[in-house]
Structure formats: C-alpha cells, structure tokens
Design a protein around this nucleic acid. Structure first.
Lengths: 129, 129
DNA sequence: TTTGTAACGCAACTATGTTGCGTTACTATT
DNA sequence: AATAGTAACGCAACATAGTTGCGTTACAAA
C-alpha cells in the first residue's frame, strides 16, 4: 500500500465531503472546487480516497455515480449498508442502519452487495411534490 | 400508451434476448445483430421494450448497463428481484426468487428497490479461478 | 390502395471517464 | 536547510456510452 500525500486539491475535496450530508458526483464536486485543480485530478483524488477507504462509490439506479464519506463509527468497516435515492431531488443518502436480509442459492459465492432504494426522501415527502 | 410496431430490427433484438440466459449490454446486442440496424436504433428499441415491460434495465455495481427479459410467470409483474453479477465472467443473471427483507425509517417513501449481489457465479466457482 | 406516423439511418453532439507524458511539489532523508 | 525520489499534477488527446435533430422509410389501420 503506497503512501498518499496531502495536497491542496485533496484537502479541498475532503472539505467538500465534510460539509455535505449527501453523496456527491464528480460534477458536483468540480463545481464546488472553484478551479482549484483540473477535472482529471478530481477523478484521481476520488480513486485514491476510495482506495484508502475514506469515501465509497455508489452507482445509482439511473447509472449516475456518486461518492460519500465512510462512517468509521463501527469497529468493522463495511459498505454494505443501503442507499436511498430520491426521485425528486436526486440526492443520495446513506442509510447506515438499513441492512437487508436474504437467502441465496448455495452455489453462488457473494463477496459484495449493493442495496439501493428509491422513492421520496423525508424532505420531498413533506413538501409533497 | 402508444402502439409499438413490429419491425425487423425489433424482432432481431427479441430473438437475441430469447436465446440468452443472462442480461445483455447494448454492445453485446449490437455485436450479435450483424448490422441489421444502426446502433442508435438499438438504443431506441431497448427503450421501447423497457417501456412495454418486455425487458428490464439493470445497472451493475461498476456502472455498466444491461437488459434482461422480464419473467411474466407471476400474476403481478415486478422487477424487485435480485441480480447476481459475476466478478470473473461479468455475466449478470436474475435471481427471480431472491427478495430481500429490510426495515426502513418511516419518513421515507420507497417506490423501487435495487438489490445486486456480486461475487462468483456457479460456473466460475466450479472452475475455481 | 391510401395515409398517418412509428421507426429508421445518419451525422453531430454531450457527458463521463481514461491514458500518456512532461512538470510540479510533497515528504522522508541526509 | 538542502537534496532527492516519486506521488500528484496539468494538459491534450482519446474512449465509451448515450442523446438529439431531421429527413426518409415502412408498418398497419382505414
């Protein structure tokens, strides 16, 4: 495992994640960066942060890719929690405590699971649109 | 709901789905089509078939999009079954009978769920690589 | 046979992500 | 504080997936 350096661009990305309660796409991050760095650099920073288990990657039902901070409150760090994708505001939030239970045929070996729910988030449900 | 016509290209796509046990990407379909039609046409056919509930769209963990026939054996037609994505052969199969159970905070309204498992499929598990 | 329009081909465009390469700037070591 | 190895960077170019506009074709109902 290589050493990852602290750079201006990386710190900027981390600060943006720190402020955000929801998952962010590359484009959303870029627009909050005020041209601190090139868009390629953002891709590379995101890759590194995923590798270092600082953020995790989420692929939405519509194929859009977002990233969210990892919650390290638990001793054992897993990403197998559920994600909620709002059809109205398109925000994606981690539902850290929602974990599905399921039964799978024995001849499959499961390494990773992805569980995404879509519908209306509390915000959009209240403003009933 | 508009009428959808029967065309040469659409029939060709349906035949390919008929033969395939696993989900297919746009590219995979195109390569099996022997230039029957333009690639844009394939996109439009896939859109129509999804709309007509003949196939359903699956977004994999890695962001790749595939399509699979719908199973209409059940009276009530739902797509909320699980999908299995093999990390070795990259095939995606529908696990029609695997349905997750879960508890979600009451302030969310769930309209759709996506449950994808990844790991090794029976084929690749046997040939142990 | 006629006719309305769904479906098509083609070209052009957009969005998203990747790669190669020369340069910059972190950080461990002297 | 100076040195040096290399992670990280900018830039250009490329790759892939999907979309849009528009004039033309061909399906199916009348």
């Amino acid at each position: 495992m290589k050493i990852t350096r602290k750079t201006v661009a990386k710190s900027a990305v981390l600060e943006i994640f720190g402020k955000s309660k929801t998952a962010l796409s590359h484009t959303e991050i870029q627009s909050q960066m005020n041209n601190v760095c090139d868009r390629v650099t953002i891709y590379r920073i995101l890759d590194r942060l995923v590798n270092d288990d600082i953020i995790h990657k989420i692929v939405n039902l519509d194929g859009t890719v977002k990233y969210a901070k990892c919650n390290h409150a638990h001793r054992v760090h897993i990403h197998n929690h559920a994600h909620f994708s709002c059809e109205n505001c398109h925000e994606i939030t981690c539902l850290e405590n929602v974990k599905p239970s399921y039964i799978i045929p024995h001849n499959y070996k499961v390494n990773d699971i992805n569980f995404t729910l879509s519908g209306l988030c509390p915000n959009c449900l209240n403003s009933n649109n």
